[in-house]
Amino acid sequence: MRKGFGDPVADDLRFVVKSLVGEENFVEMWPNKSNNYCCGGGGGFLQSGFTEERRAYGQIKLDQILATKADYCIAACHNCHAQIHDLSELSGKHFPVVHLWTLICLSLGILGPNEREYLGDDLKEVNMPEQKE
């Protein structure tokens, strides 16, 4: 957001997420929007070979996420998804990290059974569309 279209787009995304999960289920992390920290998945870091440093870099993001006590973390970008998923597994907390498209399709009732890889067990069977025999 900081590098692209700025906080107005961050607000648009909050509208989307709140519409999906309900206002009361959205937990803001701190700091946020343009003042937020990078997770450490960008800039080629994931492929740079500096794994230990990449995870040390991600510690701030991990602490931010854990402080929210939220059940799910949404990552709308691939690099962020890969990095935060790694941080989640490594921390032993194993909180699910989901793409935005997964949650949108889930809420619309059109998320197929094979499209639920990143959902936690609590949502694996929720809003499952009909299957062909």
């Binding site: 900081r2 590098k3 343009s34 990078c38 450490g40 998945g41 800039g43 740079s48 990449r54 870099y57």
Partner: peptide, 11 residues
């Protein structure tokens, strides 16, 4: 190679 170019420093 450890700076991700996130631009928080500029901000």
């Amino acid at each position: 190679w450890m700076c991700t170019g996130c631009q928080r420093c500029i901000y």
